[in-house]
Protein backbone atom coordinates (compact mmCIF):
# COMPACT_ATOMS: atom_id res chain seq x y z
CA UNK A 1 0.00 0.00 0.00
CA UNK A 2 2.65 2.53 -1.03
CA UNK A 3 0.23 5.05 -2.47
CA UNK A 4 -2.05 5.17 0.50
CA UNK A 5 0.58 6.18 3.00
CA UNK A 6 0.09 9.46 4.82
CA UNK A 7 -3.65 9.40 5.34
CA UNK A 8 -3.09 8.53 8.98
CA UNK A 9 0.36 8.98 10.50
CA UNK A 10 1.73 5.84 12.11
CA UNK A 11 4.75 6.16 14.38
CA UNK A 12 6.71 3.69 16.42
CA UNK A 13 7.68 4.71 19.94
CA UNK A 14 9.69 2.42 22.20
CA UNK A 15 8.67 -0.68 20.32
CA UNK A 16 5.01 0.31 20.21
CA UNK A 17 3.17 1.25 17.05
CA UNK A 18 1.16 4.36 17.85
CA UNK A 19 -1.62 5.66 15.65
CA UNK A 20 -3.99 8.54 16.34
CA UNK A 21 -7.20 8.24 14.37
CA UNK A 22 -8.68 11.45 13.00
CA UNK A 23 -12.35 12.27 13.11
CA UNK A 24 -12.92 12.54 9.36
CA UNK A 25 -12.02 9.00 8.34
CA UNK A 26 -14.39 7.18 6.04
CA UNK A 27 -14.71 3.41 5.85
CA UNK A 28 -12.11 3.13 3.07
CA UNK A 29 -9.58 5.12 5.11
CA UNK A 30 -10.10 2.75 8.03
CA UNK A 31 -9.45 -0.26 5.80
CA UNK A 32 -6.30 1.43 4.50
CA UNK A 33 -5.22 2.17 8.03
CA UNK A 34 -5.72 -1.45 8.96
CA UNK A 35 -3.42 -2.53 6.10
CA UNK A 36 -0.72 -0.04 7.02
CA UNK A 37 -0.94 -0.89 10.68
CA UNK A 38 -0.29 -4.61 10.26
CA UNK A 39 2.49 -3.82 7.78
CA UNK A 40 4.12 -1.57 10.35
CA UNK A 41 3.76 -4.13 13.12
CA UNK A 42 5.46 -6.77 11.04
CA UNK A 43 8.21 -4.43 9.77
CA UNK A 44 9.16 -3.22 13.23
CA UNK A 45 8.28 -6.52 14.88
CA UNK A 46 6.52 -4.37 17.41
CA UNK A 47 5.13 -5.88 20.57
CA UNK A 48 2.46 -3.31 21.17
CA UNK A 49 -0.09 -1.25 19.26
CA UNK A 50 -1.70 1.85 20.68
CA UNK A 51 -4.73 3.25 18.87
CA UNK A 52 -5.69 6.71 20.08
CA UNK A 53 -9.32 7.53 19.31
CA UNK A 54 -9.63 10.62 21.52
CA UNK A 55 -10.52 12.83 18.55
CA UNK A 56 -13.32 10.54 17.44
CA UNK A 57 -16.72 11.93 18.28
CA UNK A 58 -18.62 9.19 16.53
CA UNK A 59 -17.81 5.50 16.37
CA UNK A 60 -20.22 3.44 14.34
CA UNK A 61 -20.53 -0.32 14.28
CA UNK A 62 -18.14 -0.60 11.33
CA UNK A 63 -15.39 1.38 13.03
CA UNK A 64 -16.01 -0.55 16.23
CA UNK A 65 -15.71 -3.86 14.44
CA UNK A 66 -12.53 -2.70 12.72
CA UNK A 67 -10.97 -1.83 16.06
CA UNK A 68 -11.69 -5.35 17.22
CA UNK A 69 -10.30 -6.81 13.99
CA UNK A 70 -7.11 -4.77 14.22
CA UNK A 71 -6.56 -5.93 17.78
CA UNK A 72 -7.05 -9.52 16.73
CA UNK A 73 -4.67 -9.24 13.75
CA UNK A 74 -1.98 -7.55 15.81
CA UNK A 75 -2.49 -10.17 18.49
CA UNK A 76 -1.76 -12.94 15.99
CA UNK A 77 1.52 -11.15 15.30
CA UNK A 78 2.25 -11.11 19.00
CA UNK A 79 1.54 -7.43 19.49
CA UNK A 80 -0.72 -6.34 22.30
CA UNK A 81 -3.28 -3.78 21.16
CA UNK A 82 -4.67 -1.09 23.43
CA UNK A 83 -7.36 1.39 22.42
CA UNK A 84 -7.02 4.67 24.32
CA UNK A 85 -8.83 7.92 24.90
CA UNK A 86 -12.39 6.92 24.13
CA UNK A 87 -14.80 9.76 24.91
CA UNK A 88 -17.68 9.21 27.35
CA UNK A 89 -20.26 9.87 24.64
CA UNK A 90 -18.62 7.33 22.34
CA UNK A 91 -18.45 4.74 25.10
CA UNK A 92 -22.14 5.20 25.87
CA UNK A 93 -23.10 4.93 22.21
CA UNK A 94 -21.10 1.75 21.73
CA UNK A 95 -22.63 0.18 24.81
CA UNK A 96 -26.09 1.14 23.60
CA UNK A 97 -25.26 -0.48 20.27
CA UNK A 98 -24.29 -3.60 22.18
CA UNK A 99 -20.65 -3.32 21.13
CA UNK A 100 -18.58 -3.77 24.22
CA UNK A 101 -15.41 -4.64 22.27
CA UNK A 102 -14.72 -7.56 24.57
CA UNK A 103 -11.55 -8.58 22.76
CA UNK A 104 -9.97 -5.17 22.87
CA UNK A 105 -7.85 -3.84 25.69
CA UNK A 106 -8.40 -0.24 26.72
CA UNK A 107 -6.54 2.45 28.64
CA UNK A 108 -7.11 6.04 29.62
CA UNK A 109 -4.36 7.54 27.46
CA UNK A 110 -1.39 6.61 25.30
CA UNK A 111 0.98 7.17 28.20
CA UNK A 112 -0.68 4.54 30.36
CA UNK A 113 -0.97 2.16 27.42
CA UNK A 114 2.73 2.28 26.57
CA UNK A 115 3.53 1.88 30.25
CA UNK A 116 1.28 -1.17 30.43
CA UNK A 117 2.80 -2.73 27.31
CA UNK A 118 6.35 -2.24 28.58
CA UNK A 119 5.41 -3.55 32.00
CA UNK A 120 3.89 -6.61 30.37
CA UNK A 121 7.14 -7.42 28.60
CA UNK A 122 9.37 -7.13 31.60
Amino acid sequence: MAGASGSVPIVTIAGCVVVAIRDDLDDQDILTLQDELVEEVSRRSANGVVIDISSLEIVDTFAGRMLGAMAQMAGMMNARTIVVGMRPAVAMTLVDLGMTLEGVETALNADRAIEAIRAGQA
Binding site: I82, M86, P88, A91, L94, T100, T106, L108, N109, A113
Partner: peptide, 12 residues
Protein backbone atom coordinates in the same frame (compact mmCIF):
# COMPACT_ATOMS: atom_id res chain seq x y z
CA UNK B 1 -23.55 -4.08 33.17
CA UNK B 2 -23.81 -1.28 30.63
CA UNK B 3 -22.08 1.17 32.91
CA UNK B 4 -19.29 -1.31 33.58
CA UNK B 5 -18.84 -1.93 29.86
CA UNK B 6 -18.67 1.79 29.11
CA UNK B 7 -16.16 2.30 31.92
CA UNK B 8 -14.01 -0.47 30.47
CA UNK B 9 -14.19 1.05 26.98
CA UNK B 10 -12.88 4.29 28.43
CA UNK B 11 -9.83 2.38 29.60
CA UNK B 12 -10.69 2.18 33.25
Amino acid sequence: LKTASAVRLMGS
